[in-house]
Design a protein around this nucleic acid. Structure first.
Lengths: 165, 165
DNA sequence: ATTTATTTTCATTTTTTATTGAAAATACAA
DNA sequence: TTGTATTTTCAATAAAAAATGAAAATAAAT
């Protein structure tokens, strides 16, 4: 398989994965493009490679930056902005985990913490409350796990996996 | 806070979470409704509680069943079908992890396994290949981790979390 | 076999989300 | 400054996804 084919397929698959993770397809595709490119790319490069409009490219580049997955690359003597993505999968995983925690887990935890104070008189209501308390305990563990992950290094993770298998 | 308010808020929050996980809002809301209800519910109950059409209710109940999150409840003497959801958060987590593995991780792994055979002559192409190999190694670990998780019990998980924190 | 209750399907409509492209804003250079 | 390149915004449009509702199919009861 040739590089161009592989790159194209990688972009396609990454984009599709993004969709089932609630991330815009284009955002995931731009990420894939940057991951598979050794040099930083300009907005125009991205527009051309993916056949998308300037507005679309710009919006999704900003989104990638806000996710901490892409940053501006300094290009001496160039007026245009260039962008690059960290290719270290461990860093990417940590970054995604942290952002999803911030955007989804934290707000959900706040809601649950509020809901567990529900008054429960009947048996049914007590069951509901118990379920919420269990959920609270799991989300707390998930929270801690992500914090731990974020402070750990690649090696720690692989050693852990080894031990667990 | 009263039960009805809490239930309503739980359904709202669970539905929103679903959206950012690539799951239809209604499917997540039906799940939340069943999780917060001590008795099995009929399609009509669900339609009424969530103000949705029969077609919508039916489709999303089927989706929940295909995710292994809901099953028919046997109701002696009843002609209608009733549905219930397992409320054990550990079971739910395992089930979601397994389904997402099957639907997303496995296909992605197949693609990556194919892509790593890409011929890489230039330095840039070698970098791309290295990134793919790293990705391959991570997806393999994730795969094993989910398998292990699925065979483990609640206690194992919490003990692990304790040790890690 | 016929009626009645219930579920499923799916063409149509609605809603939501993503994309475009051109105008406005900004940043830089001469 | 003034002009030029570049980025950003956003109203309009397009595309995708979800929801409706009524007809068809199925299953149970008489």
């Amino acid at each position: 398989m040739k590089f161009e084919e592989a790159q194209e397929e990688f972009i396609r698959a990454w984009g599709e994965l993004g969709s089932s993770w609630g991330v815009s397809k284009t955002m995931a595709q731009i990420h894939a493009l940057l991951l598979s490119s050794s040099k930083p790319l300009s907005t125009e490069d991205i527009m051309n490679e993916l056949n998308i409009s300037r507005g679309n490219a710009n919006m999704n580049i900003r989104a990638l930056i806000s996710w901490g997955l892409t940053k501006k690359a300094f290009m001496p003597g160039e007026r245009k902005e260039y962008f690059e993505s960290d290719k270290d999968i461990w860093n990417i995983s940590k970054q995604v985990a942290q952002e999803r925690k911030r955007r989804e887990l934290d707000p959900m935890r706040r809601v649950i913490d509020e809901l567990v104070t529900v008054e429960a008189k009947t048996t049914e209501e007590k069951e509901f409350k118990m379920m919420l308390k269990e959920l609270q305990s799991y989300t707390k563990s998930a929270d801690r796990l992500i914090d731990k992950l974020s402070r750990s290094d690649k090696n720690w993770f692989f050693k852990l996996v080894m031990k667990l298998i």
